[in-house]
Design a binder for these strands. Sequence first.
DNA 1: TTGAAAGCGCTAACAA
DNA 2: TTGTTAGCGCTTTCAA
Lengths: 337, 337
Amino acid sequence: VPRRPTLRDVAERAGVHPGTASRALDPALPGRVTEVTARRVREAARELGYAPDPIARTLRTRRSGLIGVLIPDLMNPVLPPIVRGIEETLWDAGRAVVLADTDNDAARESTLLAELQARRCEGLIVATATRTSEAVRALAGGDVPAVLVTRDVDDADLPLVAGDDAAGVMAAVDHLTGLGHDRIAYLTGPLELSTTIVRLQAYLEAMSSSGAEPLVRHGEAFTAAAGRRLTAELLDDRDDVTAILAGNDLMALGVYEALAEAGLRCPADVSVVGHNDMPFVARLQPPLTTVAIPQREIGGAAARALLRRLDGGAADADLRRLLPTRLVVRGSTMRRP
Amino acid sequence: VPRRPTLRDVAERAGVHPGTASRALDPALPGRVTEVTARRVREAARELGYAPDPIARTLRTRRSGLIGVLIPDLMNPVLPPIVRGIEETLWDAGRAVVLADTDNDAARESTLLAELQARRCEGLIVATATRTSEAVRALAGGDVPAVLVTRDVDDADLPLVAGDDAAGVMAAVDHLTGLGHDRIAYLTGPLELSTTIVRLQAYLEAMSSSGAEPLVRHGEAFTAAAGRRLTAELLDDRDDVTAILAGNDLMALGVYEALAEAGLRCPADVSVVGHNDMPFVARLQPPLTTVAIPQREIGGAAARALLRRLDGGAADADLRRLLPTRLVVRGSTMRRP
DNA sequence: TTGAAAGCGCTAACAA
DNA sequence: TTGTTAGCGCTTTCAA
């Protein structure tokens, strides 16, 4: 059986000692070896099709080249682009991505975090944080660098990369007030998520600066079902609402359903705005006006932030990196009737 | 610095030799060690918070516990559920998933396949195959077990797990003929994908057995743009088409666009059927009738097939496992006008 | 500049 | 049943 070649084979063929071959092949150390031997070794390596064994290297150097990526649920449409951005950036940097999905389960979160570390991941990218996750907070003190994506945890000095949701929500409120709306309701996601809080806060600020009275309903989850229930309740209580800002696009889907059920038209009777610009919302009827988030870039930026840290970068240089969002105006908003 | 404990530390504390400690901690070998020493060792391990180093273990045993998963593009809506199914099954079996995305690039495919193997992945799940991918075909002879998902490669004895697309397409044609249609066009995806061929073949068979004349257009990609272009061309040539079967849902989106552009209504003038039942197609206008594929189950089944092989299962027991698909009838199909 | 030797932490073959 | 020994493939001191 033609075993894959080791450094020893290369050294033998080049007529040098394995140690020398190792030095010759290490690009970080030019001048540690004669140019002529370096050439001989490289040649032998090429002829043999030699590739260093990452496992053996890791055992020696303690660097595995593995980055753990923890996500809440890959089937949530916002995540694939983020994971994609992370993954392409890390592969390009010679790292491999170990993906783990918590299924939105806190217990699973801490299990998987431990598992990822046990498997010697050099760094962690975490998209599952709730404001109170202890397991995530503990990462701040730990010895494996971690970066949070999208979701932040309270009171921990962990770097975060996310979209500038606040700016997006403010733009959405401005858009609606610009269209003459002032009875604008906001439907939140679960309060244990930082994204919910950030968006809600922005809504409240924008409303107060426009002098309009805020109107908030809290949802138990970022789902269409929650959006639908909240909207139905809202319409029962108040018949003067002319615009609804949904915590995210999934909830906006539920808003559409509830409006249709109540015999209200969108946007003729009620304008609707979502958040995230997930795939295909432009193809809904009506096409959804929403806050677009640069998901893939967020993933890439998170990966780069982690790489910087792994290369000994300053730990405090780039806490809280917010990437620009933008309001995409489509057919679900119009001038107040 | 309180270095994490090694097996040596555990052995020392338990007063035994490292080799003995190793045996005591190995769950696969009961009876290789006295119950009393086993207990002592386990106790010591617990007290020290010992966790075996997976890297060292891998170097020794050649088994990394890592499974490489190669996908064409995570942002293609069919993939997240598949990856999810793979990932949850493998974690439950104590394996970790290394995810790599080729971005539909053949060169990247072979690079990443090599990289995954260099990183000592014990097994591979490949969703990127084209009918001719050499790099994938080479896996058949290789020493790391591989399972294909959804996309097959020609002339290679690699196990495949996929949805039963043929049955789905036949059901779709039957559904349409049952509604009185006989001018049913089929829009294919790229011919280098096995899924395209399987679906097309099924369409041709179903048409011939119903005695209707087949009407096929070939698309260069499974995209909305392709679906749109093909439909526009089709409508230019033939004004008698009353139903269109799209290669997948993305193409069906394009069909919707082209019909609207041509001033034709769906389903009143033309019925449309998609394939995949990707998220949110039920919310299109009209809701899309489509062939649903059990994506998550396919992922799970692929993972289990690989695990079986890793445990020395027969290599030929389960080549070509097809999971049942089903036609989901929604609003885009109706009785022929 | 190169060779020699040790060792990362673990497991498996062999010996006692 | 347990201890001993060797070695997975690599890097990195230390000497020459």
